[in-house]
Design a protein around this nucleic acid. Structure first.
Lengths: 266, 266
DNA sequence: GCCGAAGTGTGTCCTGGATTGCAGAACTCT
DNA sequence: AGAGTTCTGCAATCCAGGACACACTTCGGC
């Protein structure tokens, strides 16, 4: 959706991102630069913290084994049909990890930015694991097969520790989110989520206010709420000057205010 | 409150659990036997899967370093005030892990049965971690200090893998619970939770129906709902003959029926 | 430019649970 | 055996958010 057809990243045909018409919306252009930047390193692994301890040989070997692949917006990276049989590295674009209920409603578990590693459950032997992963932008992803992974990871003790740490953080985040879900009203959850997203998100150099690139619908998925309810709280925030909105974008104007709301009960 | 003044824990006086009067309620007496049984091995570590790979020397060493301590019902095992600085092993009794919101409402993260290991976040370097642990029965707990743990664990690569697996399972469970919370009505969550508890819980040899030893209030804490709402769905289940109730106990009569409900949308 | 799709603003109605406030039943302790 | 606690059952009321149903706007493609 952002870049029409031309997002192949790991391959050679990197069409100049700069040829696109610049956005009008506001004095922001982070994404252009992000694409340019992540197009650079040919290795899928370098710069991913998890792999930092690999020997350069291992790294090279793995790199050769992990052909980058392009998924475009809307495509499923994995699902029940193609259960997680590999470790994925998101190189460019954005991926949404989600779960589905019988009635078709979905909850977004996470929205991944470039550099993220996913499918880690594989590493841990979890087999049946009903998460889905969908590209929400055209994305390039490298994947390591299960066997590759076993060879290079489970042997390396440092790796195991790192993975533990990774999972530990995830546990902490999930527990927090669970209690938020259980005992906080939508407004608070929304504020909290926005703040958290802003932290993670690509930081714009051109403004001091953080921006989050998400539609109300996507945000709703993350909040476990309806699009409508989310829209309503967002407009509320906007009129209170806590945020500013642009189609598919949210600018955080007053993070202190949001933090206050995120802690309140109603 | 259950056992008045006798909480000396680290000392040797472990009063015989068998002296207590047997319960009347129903043809069940699991708990008496559980206590008798777990009273036996003086080692805190044996029989805990996580430690299976330790050398016998290591095991013995750790064992010496981890004096069992008694907490009685209602006591906090750890909290913000005494942040998690150790790894705990629950030897007997039951512990509730929970989180608190500003307004005092709490969500129960887990209810642990004997044999469970908790405080694992320590292993992973998570420092600030605002979970509380409270004994909901008189419980004996062994603890390993942070330094002990580091010495004997982080060195051992097999351990790291095991810990990863442990955390991985936890992640999976949490994600599931999160989506349940987000998009399933109370009735479904209740049914699902009951089933899950029944699996974990000590299995009675005297009846085929599984029993869960929990008050409505405790269950509510786990569900993120009020006691009243939980009570209501429970009575509903009871009249539908899915369960039978006894003060502080729930008997699962028709797990198939519950499973059906747990999957339904309303 | 024009058109369709995607993203957003609102309004109404309706329901699942939270809240509050008791009351009776089952245990526990002394 | 009596007294205080703990657990469970109800009923009345309230309200945040879900379900629908549109209108409007912005964007990207042709």
């Amino acid at each position: 959706m952002t870049a029409p057809g031309l997002n192949d990243a790991c391959s050679t045909t990197i069409l100049s991102a700069a040829t696109r018409p610049s956005k009008v919306w506001a004095p922001h252009e982070q994404e252009v630069e992000i694409l340019a930047e992540t197009g650079e390193p040919f290795s899928c692994l370098s710069a991913v913290e998890l792999f930092a301890d690999l020997t350069t040989q291992d790294m090279a070997a793995l790199d050769r084994m992990s052909p980058p692949r392009l998924f475009h917006s809307g495509e499923l990276v994995f699902s029940q049909a193609q259960p997680v049989s590999a470790l994925f590295i998101l190189k460019a674009g954005r991926i949404r990890i989600f779960r589905v209920a019988e009635d078709g409603k979905t909850l977004t578990i996470a929205i991944l930015e470039p550099g993220a590693v996913f499918g880690e459950m594989l590493l841990v032997g979890q087999q049946m694991y009903d998460n889905y992963a969908e590209a929400i932008e055209d994305s390039t992803v490298c994947q390591l097969s299960a066997t590759d992974v076993e060879e290079h990871f489970l042997s390396n003790p440092k790796m195991a520790v790192k993975i533990s740490r990774l999972l530990g953080e995830q546990v902490a985040r999930l527990e927090e989110r669970l209690t938020d879900m259980a005992l906080r009203p939508l407004s608070a959850r929304t504020a909290a989520t926005l703040l958290k997203l802003a932290e993670t998100a690509p930081r714009s150099r051109f403004t001091q206010s953080q921006s989050v690139k998400l539609t109300h619908e996507q945000l709703a998925g993350l909040l476990g709420a309806t699009r409508e309810a989310t829209s309503k709280t967002m407009s509320d925030f906007a009129t209170r000057n806590l945020i500013r909105q642009g189609r598919g974008r949210i600018l955080i104007e007053d993070s202190a205010g949001l933090r206050r709301i995120s802690r309140s009960t109603f």
